[in-house]
């Protein structure tokens, strides 16, 4: 028996989203067609803001930094997350304690994570440079180095989110049919061959799921950078989201900032769409 019922219960939620998200989104699209400095009268420029975008070096810089951080952090997190998940799947002891340790980094507020790493990575008093010294390596400027700031942010994000990926992949591993592994073992597959030919293909849907979740957060990366460098030094860590935010709320160039945000949203939704397609390809 399938009767439509309770449909009215959706209305308040949909109404709320329409007012708080749908209308503002339309308003953003509308504003992106205006030259509009907050406080002054807007005047229409059509697609002018988007044309300006294509000729704006800071936009391309932001796009490059966004993608650089995305690829670096996602690759590191997927590899380390897989390693950690396989390890967790083998070690059966202290599960509760280990899980408590694993969830702590990613439930901390990003602001706290940023402040914490500011102290650890401080070039003059930080523990990170001290550890480098113990290993006989030269000190680094970390977040203060134009060339190394993005790898450093990727390092912080990897520290925070690798355990999350590991726990998703662990759940995927534990849901795999055990008889496949028994059959593979009988056929003589083990070690790296087993991982490459059996485990990875079976785990692929979970991996794509984890990658999707991280893609959304990484492509719109904001909090940790804003707390630690605010896009600096110079523009070395100015992701698209940071650039758009500063354009809007520091320089109050609302119209152009709206166009930047629309571009960023297209990027995020495009990546999610691609990954959703990939999810269907690797399904089994």
């Amino acid at each position: 028996m399938h009767r439509r019922r309770f449909v009215w219960m959706i209305a308040p939620a949909i109404g709320f989203v329409a007012v708080m998200v749908g209308f503002p989104f339309a308003y953003t699209l509308w504003l992106s067609g205006f030259a509009f400095h907050f406080g002054a009268a807007p005047h229409p420029v059509g697609l002018g803001n988007y044309r300006a975008l294509l000729g704006d070096g800071k936009f391309w810089n932001g796009l490059w930094i966004t993608l650089y951080l995305y690829v670096l952090a996602l690759a590191a997190q997927l590899v380390l997350g897989l390693y950690l998940a396989l390890l967790l799947n083998r070690v059966k002891r202290f599960r509760r304690v280990v899980r408590s340790v694993l969830i702590s980094p990613f439930v901390l507020p990003p602001v706290v994570v940023g402040l914490m790493w500011l102290v650890v990575l401080d070039p003059s008093i930080g523990a990170a440079n001290y550890l480098l010294g113990l290993l006989g390596l030269p000190p680094s400027l970390w977040l203060a180095s134009p060339g190394f700031v993005i790898p450093t942010v990727a390092l912080i994000d990897t520290w925070q989110w690798t355990p999350f990926i590991a726990l998703i992949l662990l759940a995927g591993l534990q849901a795999l049919p055990g008889d496949v592994f028994e059959a593979a073992a009988i056929d003589g597959a083990h070690g790296f061959a087993l991982l490459r030919r059996v485990t990875l293909p079976l785990l692929a849907p979970s991996i794509v799921t984890a990658a999707t979740l991280r893609s959304v957060d990484l492509l719109r990366f904001f909090d940790v950078i804003y707390v630690t460098t605010q896009g600096g030094p110079g523009e070395a860590s100015e992701t698209l989201n940071i650039y758009g935010f500063r354009q809007g709320f520091v320089f109050l160039d609302i119209g152009y900032a709206c166009a930047l945000m629309v571009a960023l949203t297209v990027l995020v939704l495009g990546a999610v769409g691609l990954l959703a397609r990939m999810r269907r390809v690797v399904a089994w």
């Binding site: 708080m20 998200v21 209308f23 503002p24 989104f25 308003y27 953003t28 504003l31 959304v216 719109r220 904001f222 989201n241 758009g244 935010f245 809007g248 709320f249 609302i254 900032a257 709206c258 945000m261 629309v262 960023l264 949203t265 995020v268 939704l269 999610v272």
Partner: peptide, 11 residues
């Protein structure tokens, strides 16, 4: 999934 500033600007 949308970046927060997408709504924050019009808000």
């Amino acid at each position: 999934m949308a970046p927060g500033a997408l709504f924050l600007l019009p808000w």
